[in-house]
């Protein structure tokens, strides 16, 4: 149906988006790769020199790098665990008929719209503060020692804050997927005498598999780049206890002004994200054919 003429027009309509994204990807990324091979500090302009793989060997052998990798994995894994398990349970609950469904849905998805700096500061001060926080008050009320969240369990505290923001996302997507489940299939299995637990594992969970995969992959992409929550609560500390890869690269380049090492770290972050991205692209690509 498409004529030669309309094909040319289509190409013209697509090209601005393609050219801009191509520029956005290639120019800065190329510069990052180039910088990663330079000895380059913003405090000493004009002293740039070729460094070979020096930045990489420095960055990759820095103890902070191992801490950052570990923290990144722990942060991503912890948030995924909470949001996926919690999201499935919540979706199961919200899928039942009850009074006020619409309002409860609004309450549950609200945290997703709260900007990261607000949620981090509200949680840190008004809930997790060991003196004035609400948790400290509750602990006191039941005769327990208040927890000093950001001193004793800093990374776990950040995981909790981030998970609060992403739980609605997982719930919303899993709930949408659950609502497309064939009711008759469930009824049939119920008549065959399948209990609630076996119905969940044999019918509901397999039906959700695809949505769960999508939730995991998309969240991973975002969670690898968690930054604001760390910046406003702990600044990566105490020590390197809450420094993830994103924060480490930020600290190297914009706090210590070491562009070379920071760039090497940036390249490492890109490679790690790409490994996740390949899986995600396959999932979504398959859907395009369907």
């Amino acid at each position: 149906m498409a004529t030669q003429h309309s094909r040319a027009a289509a190409r013209l309509m697509i090209s601005p988006a393609v050219i801009l994204l191509l520029g956005w990807m290639l120019i800065p990324l190329g510069m990052t790769i180039y910088f990663s091979f330079l000895r380059y500090n913003l405090l000493m302009p004009g002293t740039e020199a070729w460094a070979g793989f020096e930045n990489y060997s420095y960055f990759l052998t820095d103890p902070a790098f191992f801490a950052a990798i570990w923290n990144t994995l722990f942060l991503v894994g912890g948030v995924l665990l909470i949001t996926v398990v919690g999201g499935i349970l919540l979706a199961l609950l919200l899928d039942q008929p009850f009074w006020g469904q619409g309002i409860v849905r609004l309450l549950v998805i609200a945290p997703f719209f709260v900007m990261p700096t607000v949620s981090a500061l509200v949680w840190k001060n008004m809930f997790m503060n060991p003196v004035n926080g609400l948790f400290a008050f509750l602990a006191d009320a039941i005769g327990m020692q208040p927890v000093d969240f950001f001193a004793e369990i800093p990374l776990l505290s950040i995981i909790l804050i981030v998970a609060w923001g992403w739980l609605p996302f997982a719930t919303l997507i899993l709930l949408t997927a659950m609502q497309s489940l064939d009711g008759e299939q469930l009824e049939a299995s119920e008549m065959d005498g399948a209990g609630a637990v076996s119905r969940f594992f044999h019918i509901v969970l397999p039906h959700l598999a695809r949505a769960i995969t999508v939730v995991i992959l998309i969240q991973t992409i975002f969670l690898l780049s968690i930054f604001a929550e760390i910046l406003v609560t702990t600044n990566g500390g105490p020590g390197t206890a809450t420094t993830n890869l994103t924060f480490l690269v930020y600290a190297e380049s914009l706090l210590r002004f070491d562009v070379g090492t920071g760039s090497a770290g940036g390249v490492v972050a890109v490679i790690l994200a790409n490994i996740v991205a390949i899986f995600l692209m396959r999932m979504i690509g398959k859907n395009l054919d369907a």
Partner: peptide, 20 residues
């Protein structure tokens, strides 16, 4: 798919060039 892949680029990978 390629457009989507640009979204996978972690921002910190291009922080320094954009900043400069």
């Amino acid at each position: 798919m390629w457009m989507l892949s640009t979204k996978m680029l972690p921002p910190v990978g291009v922080l320094i060039p954009i900043y400069l």
